[in-house]
């Protein structure tokens, strides 16, 4: 296998991991808008009403970006959004940790206050950093195996 094809396969894995996690996270939250709003409000970084609307929108954004990554359509743009989302989550969780809040990240539903011995900030940050790395790989090198980009636009254009 050539180095190029190997990297294409790495790209496929990155797409499926980041995209798959985004889709699952979005689907688990989408049916409970109040819970999603409360989870964002618990981070206490935005005005209360703004956090509510972010909470309403976030699951849908995650689903859209996740699906685009899974099918490999506009991979680079989708990966930019995915990586920015993950970076934002890392910042949000880190500030909650630093300020001594005790909240669940609400990444896959749930969220809000938890007992102080039930926080999992380190694990949540490590996971989101890993996912951000998947996004970063695809931003740098969006070409990948089994992508709609390649099928629709041809190999020479898929890095667009």
């Amino acid at each position: 296998m050539s180095a190029g094809r190997l990297r294409d396969h790495v790209g496929l894995v990155a797409r499926l991991v980041l995209g798959g996690v985004l889709v699952v996270a979005g689907v688990l939250k989408v049916g409970n808008p109040l819970g999603a709003a409360r989870a964002v409000q618990a981070y206490d970084v935005m005005p209360f009403e703004l956090a509510r609307w972010i909470g309403y929108a976030l699951p849908w954004v995650e689903i859209v970006v996740g699906v685009l990554l899974v099918i490999g359509l506009f991979t680079r743009v989708s990966a930019v959004v995915g990586a920015v989302l993950m970076a934002a989550f890392v910042v949000g969780i880190a500030q909650a940790w630093a300020r001594g809040l005790s909240i669940d990240c609400g990444c896959f539903g749930g969220g809000g206050q938890v007992a102080s011995d039930q926080t999992e900030y380190g694990r949540e940050i490590a996971r989101d950093l890993g996912l951000a790395l998947c996004g970063a790989w695809l931003v740098v090198r969006p070409a990948s195996t089994l992508s709609l980009d390649r099928a629709l636009f041809g190999a020479h254009k898929e890095s667009a």
């Binding site: 989408v30 808008p33 109040l34 999603a36 709003a37 609307w53 309403y56 929108a57 699951p59 849908w60 954004v61 689903i63 859209v64 685009l68 359509l73 506009f74």
Partner: peptide
């Protein structure tokens, strides 16, 4: 894709605000 994505996200937010 942009039109579909915007429709889904805006529709979702409108539905969410009505649901809550």
């Amino acid at each position: 894709v942009v039109v579909l994505a915007m429709a889904l996200i805006i529709g979702g937010v409108v539905w969410a605000s009505q649901d809550t």
